[in-house]
């Protein structure tokens, strides 16, 4: 028994020692990347600043690439001065085209002296959105050049919506897991405009919603969406909206956040 205790004490000592070794190395927590907030009205310079965040964070570019390293034995192309070099790398490609290709089809053109194998940036695991890639390109342009790309620039590539959201997540949970939509987005995504007018007072299949906020409270709007037949607007047939929404899968797909955004949006429509 005494031997056993001694051995156990020894085991604790050794484990403590290794725990101590574990404390002596740099302690860093890595958080999952957060999507950058990109506004459509950002200038190329502002976009470049946002792009720098992405390059160091979500894009994980700096895990491989250096910026401004003059080391002789680089394993990956250095990005210092890429803004100037991009226009000259491939005959007939300007800098934006070249950078876009490097991100969307990285193994199409390999810089001399390096091996291929860079992951496709708009696919998981990195999975940057098209807008984020534009920000990255703006930043890369700023390294040695002047950024010109804005969110309005057409790169000639688009990412299918499926690929950016985690596909398996969608498949496994059966619920929409794309980025949460805002009110107008929900209104558009679920095809509300097919029946309802939101900008004018003209009636469609359903009543106009341009003045919803001035005639209904938020709870009433909620009820009108979740249970359309509870109160049917005068002059319209009952059951149509409920049946349409059920058939289109609206009730399965819509998330709480989206529903809230939709109600808020409708409540803001005061008419006039």
């Amino acid at each position: 028994m005494k031997t056993g205790l001694k051995i156990f004490a020894f085991a604790i000592l050794v484990s403590l020692f290794y725990s101590y070794v574990g404390q002596t190395v740099p302690q860093k927590i890595t958080y999952p990347p957060e999507s950058a907030e990109l506004g459509a009205d950002m200038s190329a310079t502002e976009l470049a600043a946002a792009g720098e965040e992405i390059v160091g964070g979500k894009g994980t570019c700096l895990g491989c690439h250096t910026i401004g390293s003059h080391s002789e034995s680089l394993r990956f192309p250095d990005l210092g001065g890429i803004g100037a070099a991009a226009a000259t790398r491939v005959e007939g490609q300007d800098d934006v085209t070249y950078l876009a290709e490097s991100l969307y089809e990285p193994n199409k053109f390999i810089v001399e002296g390096f091996l291929g194998g860079m992951p496709v940036i708009n696919k998981p695991p990195i999975g940057l959105s098209d807008d984020e890639i534009k920000a990255v390109i703006a930043y890369l342009q700023s390294l040695g050049g002047t950024p010109t790309v804005t969110l309005a620039t057409d790169l000639g590539y688009t990412t299918a919506e499926q690929a950016t959201a985690s596909p398996a997540q969608a498949a496994a949970s059966g619920a929409s897991t794309g980025p949460a939509l805002d009110g107008p987005g929900v209104f558009a995504a679920y095809g509300c405009a097919a029946c309802h007018n939101i900008l004018t007072a003209d009636r469609g299949v359903g009543p106009s919603l341009h003045d919803t906020g001035s005639r209904m409270t938020k709870p009433e709007i909620y009820e009108a969406i979740v249970d359309p037949d509870a109160i049917v607007a005068e002059g319209y047939p009952a059951g149509v909206m409920g049946a349409t929404l059920s058939a289109s899968g609206f009730y399965q797909k819509v998330s709480t956040e989206e529903l809230k955004a939709l109600v808020d949006y409708l409540a803001d429509q005061k008419g006039g």
Binding site: S19, G22, Q23, V25, P26, Q27, K28, I29, T30, Y31, P32, K123, P124, P125, G127, S166, P167, A168, Q169, A172
Partner: peptide, 18 residues
Amino acid sequence: VYGVMADTSPDAFTPTLG
């Protein structure tokens, strides 16, 4: 599952080595 299913739980971060 790397690149396929993201961890969206509160534990998604990578803790310190300590």
